[in-house]
Nucleic acid binder design. Structure first.
Lengths: 254, 254
DNA sequence: CATTAAAGCGTATGCCATACGCAGATAACG
DNA sequence: CGTTATCTGCGTATGGCATACGCTTTAATG
């Protein structure tokens, strides 16, 4: 991933979107005062997304919600894409409390993972936003900070800590997506999420009826027998496997 | 997630998009013959995405690429959204060879995970497509089949196998995203990926300079010391942690 | 051969992001 | 205290987009 700025000159300027997100643009003093703030714009956009879905988030919709002209928004945000970026950053909200002074890394990282999932469940539209790679926005960086705090003093090397944090957040994202889709289908057809799951398995059974899918058929047969498990237990299972794997390595080095 | 169709009546029809993806629409015999096939449309769309990015994929672009009118495409695909769905399904390509008769679950699942990453790297635009939840398209189902094949006979219960497969594919997706973003930034500014990584760390250093980010500063200091690691080694690290965690559970039950 | 239904697709609609430039506001400068 | 530079809000215009509708042509069925 390359090294930090060991000898990179300091005159490499921050890209505009990063400076914007961190509030580092130097506000000039010349012209009239602004009637809005970037935070207001972002908050309004989030409100629209939360209420009517990501597809309802248009510049004109946000503007009219704020009682200003559409083009005025571009005095606050260079493109809609940047706005989406800021929306996601803000909508994640505060991370769970960081690892306490006498707390082990494992419960702290578990809490961090649960926080990830909770955030995505609070604002499901975030899953539709194609995310933009390496985290650089303020709140994302704070989340990362908390994640790395959990792994301090574990003997894991830097790149290993990065991978571990990515492991947890990636799993949270995948899990959120899977369950959100079923929940959404359920809500749309006015059923319980459980019925939606049943329906999914049914469709899968139909399409795999002809053709070689032994493992999937085995799976479906078993799911039919097992008692209905809580969704969150299945999520915990994967999280625990990650934590076990990491713990194994840490212990083997101690 | 609900049980399969233990007693669900068989008259629940397949949604149109599922039938379409599986080629289960009954082609009527009345009218003129079609001049294209669904596969051709999907393949062309993929070609456009591969060549000029996802943003270049418009119905009119695909149509002109095929030498037909824009609206003709709607005889093959109900909406553009469905087309994107099929594009992703197809573009994943063939999964790696399934677990062999004398092969252990671990190398098989590792290979499956590598295949996930390789697919996303082959067609980076797929990461921008907001994916649609539970896998139901033919190729996705085949990938799933192979994933579950790897976990056959491990003593893992059905829901546990689901979580495990999700764990691996989710991590592959996260990793692909992180590295693709840096690679893309590198290509755009005409640098090596390593320089792009350096630049990222530099930006991170600047924005976290003021403020309480001890864990991130620690991380950056360490990354500066470590020799440049191969990206794929860092990826392998996370994958191995998953596999370790799963193996631990399997062994503890045996 | 008449009927029927589908295929290809031109046209039109309505939404979208956003480039451009103007008018009024505001602070800095002489 | 003007004058000037510069920023704000925003009306207007552009070009692209997905897609609804309905017409014409085609071809298999009765």
């Amino acid at each position: 991933m390359g090294e930090p700025d060991s000898d990179l000159p300091n005159d490499v300027p921050l890209p505009e979107n990063i400076a914007l997100a961190w509030g580092l643009r130097d506000r000039p003093s010349r012209g009239p005062k602004r009637s809005l703030s970037l935070e207001q714009v972002v908050a309004t956009a989030i409100r629209v997304a939360q209420a009517d879905g990501l597809a309802a988030v248009s510049m004109s919709r946000i503007a009219s919600e704020l009682g200003v002209g559409t083009m005025s928004l571009y005095r606050y945000v260079p493109t809609k894409h940047d706005l989406l970026d800021l929306m996601v950053d803000t909508a994640y909200g505060s991370p769970p409390p960081p690892r306490g002074p006498d707390e082990g890394w494992r419960p702290a990282l578990a809490r961090w993972g649960e926080g990830n999932l909770a955030a995505l469940r609070r604002q499901p539209w975030m899953q539709q936003v194609p995310l933009s790679g390496a985290p650089i926005n303020p709140n994302s960086v704070r989340w990362m900070e908390y994640g790395f705090l959990a792994l301090r003093g574990t003997g894991l090397r830097a790149t290993e800590r990065v991978s571990t944090v990515l492991l947890v957040s990636g799993y949270a994202r995948s899990w959120a997506m899977l369950t959100a889709d079923l929940a959404e289908a359920a809500a749309r057809t006015g059923q319980t999420p459980n019925e939606a799951g049943q329906r999914y398995w049914h469709h899968l059974a139909v399409v795999t009826a002809t053709g070689p899918y032994p493992a999937i058929h085995e799976l479906m047969a078993e799911v039919g027998e097992e008692e209905d498990e809580d969704d969150d237990l299945e999520w915990r299972f994967g999280l625990d496997r990650i934590l076990d794997g990491v713990e194994m390595l840490i212990n083997s080095r101690a």
